[in-house]
Simulated assay, not measured.
Amino acid sequence: MDKTQQIRNFLEENSVTYREVDHDIAPTCELSAKYRGESMDIGGKTLLFKDKVGFKLFVISASLQVDSNKVRKILGSQRLRFASEKELMDLCGVVKGALPPFGRPLQDFDLYIDESIFRNERIAFNAGILTKSFIMNMNDYKKLVEPTICHFSKEEK
């Protein structure tokens, strides 16, 4: 089963209402927001990092940037890197830019969410592919995830 169908099944099994949006290929947060017709703020940008222990998922508002020094501090790790495109495909079954904002049970990774995500009433994300997005209510998203909530965004200027 592909990642998009896994997400769809997960949402439906948990009685979550969501909007599915088909769009042109959107490899960036800016394009995804444009095609969805939504603010970039509600986008959930999901990144897979590897530290000395293993891989971890981090979700942040698409309008912000990750401060890798803060991530290192959260993980207590000096060494940190993004997952490679091959690792994203091998571990998650997705290409860069299509990683959904869910850890367990959908993806076997610890999940860290920047507090910026919760400023919004909705969350939008590429649903395992670059041509489909899901948009859902933030309260529903909160019920589905068991994250470590922290602050790892760069300070807004």
Score class of each variant (00 low, 15 high):
Thr46Val: 09
Leu144Val: 04
Tyr18His: 07
Glu12Phe: 01
Gln6Trp: 02
Glu13Cys: 05
Asn69Phe: 08
Phe49Val: 02
Gly54Trp: 07
Pro100Thr: 06
Ser77Ala: 15
Asp24Ala: 15
Asn69Glu: 15
Met136Glu: 08
Val21Ser: 07
Lys45Trp: 05
Tyr141Leu: 03
Asp22Val: 05
Val53Phe: 14
Ile129Asn: 11
Pro27Gln: 08
Met1Arg: 06
Thr17Cys: 12
Lys3Asp: 04
Leu31Met: 14
Pro101Cys: 08
Asn9Leu: 11
Arg8Val: 08
Phe134Thr: 02
Val145Thr: 09
Leu11Glu: 01
Ile60Phe: 07
Met40Ala: 13
Leu111Pro: 08
Met1Ala: 14
Ala33Trp: 03
Ile149Gln: 02
Arg36Ile: 09
Arg36Asp: 10
Asp90Gly: 04
Ala127Phe: 07
Ser77Asn: 09
Phe49Met: 06
Asn9Pro: 00
Asn126Leu: 05
Gly37Arg: 03
Glu115Gln: 13
Ile42Ala: 07
Lys34Gln: 14
Glu115Thr: 11
Asp67Ile: 10
Val21Glu: 11
Leu64Lys: 14
Ser133Val: 01
Ile123Met: 06
Phe152Met: 08
Lys52Asp: 15
Ile42Phe: 06
Gly76Val: 12
Ala62Trp: 00
Gln65Asp: 15
His23Ser: 12
Cys92Ser: 07
Ile129Pro: 00
Asp22Glu: 15
Glu156His: 06
Val95Gln: 12
Lys56Asp: 06
Val21Asn: 05
Gly43Thr: 01
Ile7Asn: 04
Glu121Cys: 01
Glu13Ser: 13
Phe82Lys: 05
Phe49Cys: 03
Glu12Thr: 12
Asn126Ile: 02
Ile60Asp: 05
Pro147Thr: 03
Gln65Ile: 01
Lys70Met: 12
Phe134Asp: 04
Thr28Phe: 11
Leu88Lys: 02
Gly103Cys: 06
